[in-house]
Design a protein around this nucleic acid. Structure first.
Length: 574
RNA sequence: GCCAGCGUAGCUCAGUGGUAGAGCUGCGGUUUUGUAAACCGUAGGUCGGGGGUUCGAAUCCCUCCGCUGGCUCCA
């Protein structure tokens, strides 16, 4: 079934090209592949495509569907192919890229013929492309190379049934509603003063900072339980250190570097925490008895990302990583990986994320001995199977300095995010001459594991905002409860209860504005506050409060003491 | 960085060459309220910055800044 939809979309991309070519005979065709949720086609066009063009193109596509052209495959020699593609320079370039040994195939439907490998294959005729819709356009470099000419890309999608198309479009709308930038604005969580302070730099507002703190405090307690020791390293260090770590050589364009008074070497703002952690490890002679050494830091790093790539909390220039480095012996590697896997699982299960593990092996260009790679990869494999986790093995996708494990989590809308990465590193211990003394009084080089679970706290909060649509669970909610007095008469009673809640460690507020109950409830709901406690005469007389919950409305009245005990339990994150 | 669209009050937006608008928010007052919006009044903008065209520019042109969607999931 999955193939079928790909076939439909592949043919639909041909139909799109056919329609565009009918309407605008001068366009030059690029490529038109099937992608994750649809397909696209690239065109060289004198101007951009407008919404009006979309309608015309869709209309023309419908005509092509109605005429139900059969798709016919044929092959040509290179010379004949180039002739066939007269006037289509990009297609001709593609023909020249095809190796001698492979056949050059075309698909023809009506008057339209396209160079096409036939992967995925096509449906039999143009009436079978399902229900489609043009979604958007964008600029896209020919062959993705920014030195090449920019083409106009049309994104579209198709589904077998109209209801499926509608469900997909609804999902896009829902995602838009949940956009963390929009919710962040409404809930006063964060601000990015692009114009005044620079893009990609996050200002956490009081409400957002509470959220960040709750997440960090929980994460910190989880790390401490798991044997990590928290450290903090400076935000800027001499460029010498970045030379030593190799970051300057590989990462210079992404680093913020500034001169200092002590000479011409200058200082670099840290784009990564690793070198600092290497120094901390190396400050004294280490015994095998103290391994593994697990150093953890909420390390704030800055990277000079390209101007056009910033996006809310997802892609920023400054962010805080929940970063840790584990220094261990080769014999400990497997167990350490198992611990990290279990740790990540305990973190993600808290949020109800499903997740998938990818195991990325040795790339073509790599450092480290064959023996080390083999040992590392086999340890990872053993760890994965012992932890009872399924992992997809992707050879060649690891870092040049060692194999890695990447987690992909799936949110409430079924979207995928990569947060966690676990990497084994043969490079840095070497560069920093790290060692420990083994039981035979010999120096050995420790194995280094880099790992971050959330990755970037900023980005993870962005994901959480969209995952929960702003309806954070109680323990994360910036404001956990609002007390709603019916009238001024009940303010004192409300204040008293507010103090009780605060003493119990609950983040509560009192709404003592001169407004009606309905208005106060509405505002609390819009602010996604989990609990609203209504207090009036009835409650005052019975030493109780009336409980309303964000998710299910009125829950009736409860005694104050009982309620506080329940809230304490609910807020207890451990 | 590149392509396209966009930038009007704290927020959401209307205004396409002729005196800058609405709702919400804010502030002042009336009301004393029972589970998603009480009422009246009032304040608030060098229309992103700069330059140009014009008798006249939020509106047209140039430029800078920023935002948004994208920029190989390869015939």
């Amino acid at each position: 079934m999955i193939n079928k939809i790909e076939n439909m979309r592949h043919t639909a991309s041909h139909v799109l090209a056919q329609a565009v070519l009918r309407l605008f005979p001068d366009v030059k065709l690029g490529i038109g592949p099937v992608i994750q949720d649809g397909f696209y086609y690239d065109f060289l066009f004198g101007r951009e495509f407008s919404e009006d063009d979309f309608l015309k193109i869709e209309e023309e596509m419908h005509r092509i569907v109605k005429d139900d052209y059969k798709l016919e495959k044929f092959t040509l020699s290179r010379e004949k192919a180039l002739e066939e593609l007269e006037g289509q320079p990009f297609k001709q370039e593609l023909v020249m890229d095809i190796p001698e040994s492979e056949e050059i195939s075309f698909y023809k439907q009506g008057e339209f013929t396209d160079l096409c490998e036939g992967k995925p294959s096509h449906v039999a005729s143009t009436s079978q492309i399902g229900k489609f819709k043009i979604l958007s356009t964008s600029g896209a470099y020919w062959k993705g190379n920014e030195n090449n000419v920019m083409l106009q890309r049309i994104y579209a999608t198709s589904f077998e049934k109209k209801s499926e198309l509608k469900a997909y479009l609804d999902k896009l709308k829902e995602a838009e509603k949940r956009d963390h930038r929009r919710i962040g604005q409404k809930l006063n969580l964060f601000e990015i003063f692009s114009q005044d302070a620079g893009s990609g730099l996050v200002f956490w507002l009081p409400q957002g900072k509470k959220l960040l703190n709750s997440l960090m405090e929980w994460s910190r307690s989880m790390h401490v339980k798991d044997g990590y020791r928290e450290i903090e390293t400076p935000h800027i260090v001499h460029t010498n250190l970045w030379e030593k770590s190799g970051h300057l050589a590989n990462f210079k364009d992404f680093m913020f570097i500034c001169p200092d008074d002590e000479g011409d070497s200058g200082v670099g703002i840290k784009p990564m925490n690793c070198p600092g952690h290497m120094l901390v490890y190396s400050r004294k002679r280490r015994s095998y008895k103290e391994l593994p050494v697990k150093l953890m830091e909420f390390g704030t790093v800055y990277r000079n990302e390209k101007a056009g790539t910033m996006h809310g909390l997802f892609r920023v220039r400054g962010f805080t990583q929940d970063d840790a480095h584990i220094f261990c012996t080769f014999d400990q590697l497997e167990n350490q990986i198992i611990e990290v896997l279990n740790f990540a699982e305990s973190i993600f299960s808290k949020f109800g994320f499903k997740w998938k593990l990818f195991f990325k092996g040795r790339p073509d260009k790599s450092i480290g001995s064959d023996a080390a790679w083999e040992k590392a990869e086999s340890s990872l494999k053993a760890a994965i199977s012992k932890a009872g986790i399924d992992a997809e093995y992707i050879p060649g996708d690891g870092a040049f300095y060692g194999p890695k494990l990447d987690f992909e989590i799936e949110d409430a809308l079924g979207r995928h995010w990569q947060c966690t990465t676990v990497q084994i590193d043969f490079n840095l211990p070497d560069r920093f001459n790290l060692s420990y003394v083994n039981s035979n009084d010999e120096e050995e080089v420790p194995v280094l594991i880099h790992r971050a679970i959330f990755g970037s706290m900023e980005r993870f909060i962005g994901i959480l905002i969209e995952h929960y649509a702003g309806n954070f669970p109680f323990w994360l909610s910036p404001t956990q409860a609002i007390i709603v007095p019916i009238s001024e008469k009940h303010f004192d009673y409300g204040r008293e209860f507010l103090n009780d809640l605060k003493s119990a460690g609950i983040r509560a507020k009192l709404d003592d504005r001169n407004e009606k109950v309905g208005k106060k409830i509405r505002d609390a709901e819009l602010n996604k506050v989990p609990y609203m406690f209504v207090v009036g005469d009835r409650e005052m007389n019975s030493s109780s409060v009336s409980v309303r919950h964000r998710d299910d409305g009125d829950r009736g009245s409860v005694s104050k003491n009982e309620l506080i005990e329940e809230l304490k339990k609910e807020g207890n994150v451990n």
